[in-house]
Design a protein around this nucleic acid. Sequence first.
DNA 1: GGCTTTGTGTCAAGCCCTCGGCACAAGCTA
DNA 2: TAGCTTGTGCCGAGGGCTTGACACAAAGCC
Lengths: 124, 124
Amino acid sequence: MTLVLTLQPDDPTPPYQQVRRQLADLITAGLLGPGDRLPPLRQLAGDLGVAVGTVGRAYRELEQEGLLTSRRGGGTRVAAHARAPEGGRRQLLEGMAAEFVARARTLGFTDEEIIVALGRQLPS
Amino acid sequence: MTLVLTLQPDDPTPPYQQVRRQLADLITAGLLGPGDRLPPLRQLAGDLGVAVGTVGRAYRELEQEGLLTSRRGGGTRVAAHARAPEGGRRQLLEGMAAEFVARARTLGFTDEEIIVALGRQLPS
DNA sequence: GGCTTTGTGTCAAGCCCTCGGCACAAGCTA
DNA sequence: TAGCTTGTGCCGAGGGCTTGACACAAAGCC
């Protein structure tokens, strides 16, 4: 599949962190599996409008975490043992859901309001 | 009420941005209304473990947006005309919900999976 | 073998953010 | 009036991030 990575300019999060996080999530969610090849440094950097070193840093850190394997001339691929540890996919989604609900509650929204808002997004 | 502001150390977002966003959300959500007083600079800075100038910057930017009014010696309060423009409270929540659902979908989760995950967080 | 691709490393420069401290001005309070 | 509180401004120092450029090494391709 064609990798869809985006950068949000108004987001104060450093670009290399945005790339790093998105790739990690894609792997944990299973959209990127072991052996899948990532875009070359220069190509991804060009698409995102950032310097080569910026994307390089994201790749490097993910490799240090064991999620990617990089070889000169061979490109960067998802590591063989990068599969989420037993239900990581579900945990990722539930973490996102818990985070969203918690934030809404601290802002004073009731559970009913939250459910109504979600109903507009999901064909229940 | 006692203001509950928190800083996430592992979050690469600059502290002054975190404070600024949380306060803006609290006002939009209606938990902070016109005339409500915010903690003094030095107190909030001490609680969060940041420098005075850091919190000061958050206050200053929010004042420039018209959400706060600051006076030397008088403290900082929510501006009189700071109420969200007609349904801002609802829009805030729906924006959060839309963002959450969109992110989950781009990670390959089906609507059913999303609903199930939310069901664990909300007593439906 | 020769060329291209690709990841890695370095470097200087600049910008943004934070810190800690200090001084100052304006409002509030006793 | 006198003192405290509070927001504002400035400063130098330090750290993190990005940029742009260049060189290098290893793998793949013809």
